[in-house]
Design a binder for these strands. Structure first.
Lengths: 106, 106
DNA sequence: TTGACATGATACCTTTCAGTATCACAAAAA
DNA sequence: TTTTTGTGATACTGAAAGGTATCATGTCAA
């Protein structure tokens, strides 16, 4: 579980990968489509996608000879949850309400 | 602004640094005190503290010959805010309420 | 079947990173 | 003043990361 957290944080450590994640959050894309948005080779983009996949931040589905990369909210959520350790330091009302709702959701 | 974000994410990419941050969130510490919690040299811990400082996640105050390292909530908050791009993917009620409160706070 | 095309895979290079070892320095204590 | 102690700084090593180039492979279309 802590390993998943590490792979997630590692994936987010690179600005290109954070950028890719925001692209995929809008719409799923093939490797080539993602690569169009960056000034680097398709191979380099593919590596970034592999790291994002290892961090469980994206899902990859092979369709024929194409690969559809899509954003995985649950994976990012796991990284996001780490920040909960520090909730008490931010706005008290917000964090209190937040825990209240999360309790309610479960 | 995006550079600060990058330094923040980079600082959080290492598990030792995330661990240090949680320690300092409980209480401020000198380098030696932080180092007691890890099986590595004080020099290595000092490097981690430097990265955390560059990411604006901790504050450092020199007092005599000691250095007090303390958690900086505002710096972590800036990293945390990046996740707002994905709010819509998580619980709708929570994120809606969250934005509402944040609006109210400002 | 042949060719085009999206992707997989590997080797290689350069830079950054995590860590150690070592020495210098400054402040507190004796 | 001398000694102790907490820290700063530098050089070095091994491993990982980001990137390119190149070729192999599988699938779709003609």
């Amino acid at each position: 579980m802590t390993e998943a957290e590490q792979l997630g944080f590692r994936a987010l450590a690179d600005p290109t990968r954070r950028s890719i994640l925001r692209l995929l959050a809008k719409d799923e894309m093939t490797i080539a489509e993602v690569a169009e948005n960056f000034q680097m080779t398709r191979a380099a983009v593919k590596k970034h996608l592999a790291v994002l996949s290892e961090g469980d931040l994206i899902r990859v589905e092979t369709v024929g000879r194409t690969r559809r990369n899509s954003f995985n909210p649950d994976g990012l959520r796991r990284v996001f949850d780490w920040f909960g350790y520090f909730d008490v330091f931010w706005d008290d009302r917000l964090s209190a309400l937040k825990s209240e709702i999360e309790k309610d959701v479960q």
